[in-house]
Every structure is written in structure tokens, then in C-alpha cells.
């Protein structure tokens, strides 16, 4: 499903550059659930952002379903994200000027779905996650666990094949963390491919494979 070859990425740092990814190679099969671990600043999130089509590498190849993502323009990348990727950001971010339904329905707006379609699909995904009772609630009225479920609902609303999650259980208590991981496993059983970025061994333990980023490259463990 995903094939990454010799991916390199650097960021400007003053007048020089910091090379974060120094030739990453990675293959992910459809239906996999993998964890990417590494120290802070090791490039985990950078790799995830490239896989999501949010960022472009300096060099290397990224193939998704054999389609070359690294050659796409920004608008093509946006379409790629809309069709294929569900992204869960760390610290469960939601837009606080929107209620839960509006937050979850945001990707559907970019897909130019009608109000009726949005209403139906948002209700469906909230039902699936068992949080339909939160639908009209404002974001600042949600607990951490509820907010993360809403963020997951937003990631799932377009029925993507690939879920990318950046520290999905960070800042959550143990019980809520377990609930979220159970949810991830359930989604994986339903056929979703999941890539988690985490520095938590408990989280990594539920995944089929764990990769480490060390010295800018991926190490299989």
C-alpha cells in the first residue's frame, strides 16, 4: 500500500539546515497497524506529515497504491488527502468556534458535500463511535477523551483507507488511552491501515509492527 524509498527531508535552521530524515525506507501493507517511535525531534511527525501529503520531501520516492505522491502539486495533494487519509493530530485539536458536528463535517465541506449529505455522514460516524450525544456540543465543553473521539470521527468521516495518528493518546489518562487504542484496533479489524506515531511503549505494543527512527533512518524492530 505504501512504499517509501530513500526519503530525505531537512529544515532551515538559521543560515544552515538540519537534516531530519536522511534516507528513510519503509513499506506498509494494506491492513497493517504499525507504530513509529523515536526521540523528540527524530523526525517521526515529519515522516507522518509526508505520508499524509501535507509536506513534501527534499528527495526520495513515496508511492501510495503505486501512485507517486512526491510528484504531486499542492492541490493534487489536497485531493489525495481528502480521498485517502484520515489524520489525527496530537493533543486532539478541534476548532473551538465550531461545534462537534461542524468539526467532524469539515472534511466533507472541502469535498463539497451538500448539507444533507454532511448531516447523514456526520451522524453515521458519530453513531459508529458511540458519541452521537456530543453532536451539538461546543468543543470547550468536551473532556480530553471525548475531544479525541471527535478528532477520530473527523478523520474517519470520509472513509479513508489510511489513518495516520500523531501521538493519539498523548495527554490522556490510562483508561481513556485504553479506550482510544481499542477503537484503533477495532478500526484496524474493519480494514483500515493505521500508522501511529508514539513514544509510548504501551501504545506501540498494540501494533503489528514497530519501527524506530534513529539518526534519520527507520530501523525495524
Amino acid at each position: 500500500m505504501i512504499e517509501v524509498k530513500d526519503l530525505k527531508k531537512s529544515y532551515p535552521f538559521g543560515k544552515s539546515k538540519i537534516e531530519v530524515l536522511k534516507g528513510v525506507n519503509l513499506a506498509v501493507e494494506k491492513g497493517d497497524m504499525i507504530a513509529i517511535m523515536g526521540r523528540s525531534g527524530s523526525g517521526k511527525s515529519t515522516l507522518l506529515n509526508i505520508l499524509a501529503g501535507l509536506d513534501q520531501p527534499d528527495s526520495g520516492i513515496y508511492l501510495y497504491e503505486e501512485s507517486r505522491i512526491t510528484d504531486k502539486r499542492m492541490d493534487e495533494l489536497a485531493n489525495f488527502r481528502k480521498k485517502n487519509i484520515g489524520f489525527i493530530l496530537q493533543n486532539y485539536p478541534l476548532i473551538d468556534s465550531k461545534n462537534v458536528a461542524e468539526n467532524v463535517g469539515l472534511p466533507l465541506r472541502y469535498s463539497k458535500k451538500s448539507n444533507k449529505q454532511r448531516e447523514t455522514e456526520v451522524t453515521q460516524v458519530l453513531d459508529t463511535l458511540g458519541i452521537n450525544y456530543l453532536k451539538h456540543r461546543w468543543v470547550d465543553m468536551l473532556s480530553g477523551g471525548e475531544a479525541q473521539r471527535v478528532a477520530i470521527a473527523r478523520a474517519l468521516v470520509q472513509h479513508p483507507d489510511l489513518i495516520l495518528a500523531d501521538e493519539p493518546t498523548g495527554s490522556l489518562d490510562e483508561e481513556t488511552e485504553k479506550d482510544i487504542l481499542d477503537l484503533c484496533k477495532r478500526l484496524n479489524h474493519q480494514g483500515k491501515t493505521i500508522i501511529l506515531v508514539t513514544h509510548d511503549q504501551h501504545v506501540a505494543a498494540v501494533c503489528h509492527k514497530v519501527y524506530y527512527i534513529q539518526g534519520g533512518t527507520v530501523v525495524d524492530k
Partner: peptide
């Protein structure tokens, strides 16, 4: 930045 990120992961672009 956070909201802009949410828009980007939801299918938005820098242009939008």
C-alpha cells in the same frame, strides 16, 4: 496555526 492545520488535514490548501 492549529486551526489552519485542521483545515489542511481536512482537505484545505494554503491557497484556500
Amino acid at each position: 496555526y492549529r486551526n489552519m492545520m485542521i483545515h489542511l488535514i481536512s482537505g484545505g490548501t494554503m491557497k484556500s
